[in-house]
């Protein structure tokens, strides 16, 4: 797949430039379900994207599914509750381990033994992340085996309609918003499997959910240290880069400790910060045209022109 990942678009709109750079002609399919009830407030997007758009209306379709298929809705909500619970327990475990890691980092004077301790802390955190991912993935697989969503008539009907729309376009654009809702709806209708040779333009939350895994982050929340956390696996339309939109608001790029930890924690994925209007292009595993984006490095520094680095798949 080829495409573009972008930062937020409220203050600096670069969607048109990204679509041009991706180079597909014709109308595009649009996903704005992350905006939830405001899904249809998309009137500005055709102008910004420079194309005719067809909104897939995944939020509205999802609401129709939940209203029409009560057993599915009940099981779906039960799974959401389970996911929320698992996330809370994971967060508790993570916070305790992170506190210990921070204490060790504060006490460290740079000896080899302390460096080993810090490495051990990072391994523990990465293990907790991976175990959480495995647990959530297992729950999702069990749910899909049990409920067979795509075989349910109401979902199958919507998928057929979605396939017709997607077959008529060469480009899929995914806006940001609530990432759990985005993931949920993209999965409910199996959108990935309805794509063929489509290109992707995804911004903010849209860029996050289309990667390998979705990481929630905010380093200056009203209270606490602001530890990032893994939500679950992404849709997997691109790989190798962990998009971190809106760093001005959410990251502390001036603090090497945080930058280094974030980078090492999610390696081998490259943590890439994307501020308003920044974007990067990808094509079949190669990343280029990193307009304004910033790479977080393992040594705690940040760098531009990072696509000179070959990203591993």
């Amino acid at each position: 797949m080829k495409g573009a990942l972008l930062g937020p678009q409220q203050l600096k709109v670069t969607l048109g430039a990204a679509v041009s750079a991706v180079g597909r002609e014709g109308p595009l399919a649009l996903v704005t379900c992350g905006w939830q009830e405001r899904e249809d407030n998309d009137e500005d997007l055709p102008g910004q994207l420079g194309r005719k758009t067809i909104n897939l209306k995944l939020y509205e379709r999802g609401e129709q599914v939940l209203a029409a298929d009560k057993p599915f809705a009940k099981a779906h909500r039960a799974r959401q509750d389970q996911l929320r619970q698992i996330q809370e327990f994971y967060r508790l475990r993570l916070e305790r381990t992170f506190d210990a890691a921070l204490d060790i980092a504060r006490k460290s004077a740079g000896t080899d033994l302390e460096a080993d301790e810090l490495r051990l802390s990072m391994e523990q955190i990465r293990r907790i992340d991976q175990e959480h991912l495995d647990r959530v993935s297992a729950l999702r697989e069990a749910y899909e085996v049990q409920l067979r969503p795509r075989e349910r008539p109401v979902i199958a009907k919507h998928r057929k309609e979605l396939k017709e729309i997607l077959d008529s376009v060469g480009l899929l654009a995914i806006a940001g918003g609530h990432v759990a809702v985005l993931l949920n709806r993209l999965r409910m209708f199996g959108v990935k499997d309805l794509l063929s040779d489509h290109a992707l333009v995804a911004w903010s939350g849209g860029a996050m959910v289309t990667g390998e895994r979705v990481v929630l982050f905010h380093e200056s929340p009203p209270e606490g240290f602001g530890i990032s956390e893994v939500l679950e696996q992404g849709i997997g339309l691109h790989a190798g880069v962990l998009p971190l939109p809106n760093p001005k608001l959410r990251l502390k790029l001036e603090e090497p400790l945080r930058v280094g930890w974030l980078s090492r924690r999610y390696a081998p994925s490259k943590c890439v910060a994307m501020d308003q209007g920044d974007f990067v292009l990808f094509d079949d595993g190669k990343w280029f045209g990193e307009e304004g984006t910033v790479l977080l490095k393992e040594d705690g520094s940040v760098g531009t022109r990072w696509t000179d680095v070959q990203v591993k798949q």
């Binding site: 937020p8 409220q10 992350g34 905006w35 806006a175 940001g176 918003g177 609530h178 990432v179 759990a180 903010s204 939350g205 996050m208 929630l216 982050f217 905010h218 929340p221 956390e229 939109p245 809106n246």
Partner: peptide, 8 residues
């Protein structure tokens, strides 16, 4: 608020 879940 939903700051951890919403990225617009």
């Amino acid at each position: 608020g939903p700051l951890r879940m919403v990225y617009e």
